[in-house]
Design a protein around this nucleic acid. Structure first.
Length: 355
DNA sequence: TCTGGGGTCCTAGGACCC
DNA sequence: TCTGGGGTCCTAGGACCC
């Protein structure tokens, strides 16, 4: 039985929320992200700003050089989360099978609903209208028989897009696209494929499996099937969080000392608070350090007893730091990541099991 | 141009156990 | 004395995504 999968992707999400909340920003280039002096990068750019070549993840200093008239706005993640909840609720009013991928993206399995709405196009148009009405935002939609194709279809229509790939046309739709369009193929895999003479998804679909060994290892088969338009992955409507972390890039590099320690304490406190709020405790604490030359290392320790205590996490991170730091080191980034998460109270359950 | 912050998943080597 | 193979856990690094 063929499925009907929708991929919905809000257009320039953070920037669009700012333009919705501040009407004076509508129609002008808006760039959301940290200040250039704080070594910020672009988290989102409105389409007006993109016309100047501004892109996500670009250094803010460069973005403002490309588009000096752009208005820079610091991110307000709480606000974006609030808008996101409203959008996801809209999706769930159509089908219970919703898999959020991030604040601004989700898959919907509408196999059971599509006939009632009068077909995929009618369903998609209604969805776009409801997102506009409930959250004030435009969304791009791709509809296809699987996740891979639906996602690429929504990407291609942006902004305010609506692309439907009929059943049986999946491979033909993907064939001319660059391999980079596939989810999971980044700069490294793209370069490795180019060495093998593979540039388009169509070439990847027909590639000799042994030629995929180098870029992908054992995942080669999965990527080839994706390129052929074959993807049976179901939606995952519930996801268990695997880690909670926080990191800070300093405006200026920091040497080991009281300032660095204070930052470590602040980061530990933030992570601890989020663990407690999420009612989980962590067995593993990892320290992340980025040196002034951008070299990045991580060090982690695991304990049998999970914790969500700020002082405990700070203490574990401090001992890790003490082991690697040497005189003269300067750091541009410091981070803590907690993993090996257990639901609060699970220890007691385990104790019961162990007699 | 000078590189954020939140994540997920994979690999590879080593320790340890049976 | 020299040699297995499977399984699990841990650590470090890296690719990738939004």
């Amino acid at each position: 039985m063929s499925r009907t999968i929708v991929h919905a992707d809000l257009d320039a999400f953070f920037a669009a929320v700012e333009q919705m909340d501040r009407p004076e920003l509508r129609g002008t280039p808006v760039v959301v992200g940290g200040a250039p002096a704080a070594r910020g990068v672009v988290a989102a750019a409105s389409y007006e700003a993109r016309r100047f070549g501004v892109r996500s993840a670009m250094a803010m200093s460069r973005a403002l050089r490309l588009c000096p008239k752009a208005v820079r706005v610091s991110p307000r993640f709480d606000r974006y989360a609030e808008v996101s909840r409203r959008v996801m609720a809209t999706f769930r009013s159509v089908t219970p099978l919703v898999e959020p991928l991030s604040l601004d993206e989700a898959f919907l399995d509408v196999t059971e609903q599509v006939e009632r709405y009068g077909g995929p196009e009618a369903l998609a148009r209604q969805l776009k209208a409801e997102v506009k009405g409930n959250a004030g935002l435009t969304v791009s939609i791709g509809v296809a028989s699987n996740k891979t194709v639906a996602k690429i279809a929504s990407d291609m229509g942006k902004p305010d897009g609506l692309i439907i790939v009929p059943i049986g046309r999946e491979a033909g739709f993907l064939e001319p696209l660059p391999v980079r369009a596939l989810w999971g193929i980044g700069p490294k895999a793209e370069a490795a494929l180019a060495v093998a003479g593979i540039h388009t998804v169509g070439q990847l679909a027909g590639a000799d499996p042994s030629a995929l060994e180098r870029p992908f290892g054992s995942r080669g088969g999965i990527f080839r099937r994706m390129a052929q338009g074959l993807d049976e992955r179901p939606l995952e409507t519930e996801h268990r969080r695997q880690s909670v972390g926080a990191e800070t890039t300093f405006p200026n590099d920091l040497a080991d000392g009281p300032e660095l320690c204070a930052q470590l304490g602040r980061i530990a406190a933030g992570v601890a608070r989020r663990l407690t709020r999420g009612r989980v405790k962590a067995r593993t604490v990892a320290l992340k350090l980025r040196y002034s030359d951008f070299r990045t290392i991580t060090r982690q320790t695991s304990r049998a007893d999970p914790t969500d205590d700020a002082d405990e996490i700070r203490g574990r991170a401090e001992s890790l730091l003490a082991k690697v730091v040497s005189p003269g080191d300067r750091f541009r980034l410091l981070g803590i990541n907690c993993s090996g998460l257990e639901e609060d109270g699970k220890e007691e359950q385990l104790r019961l099991w162990q007699r």
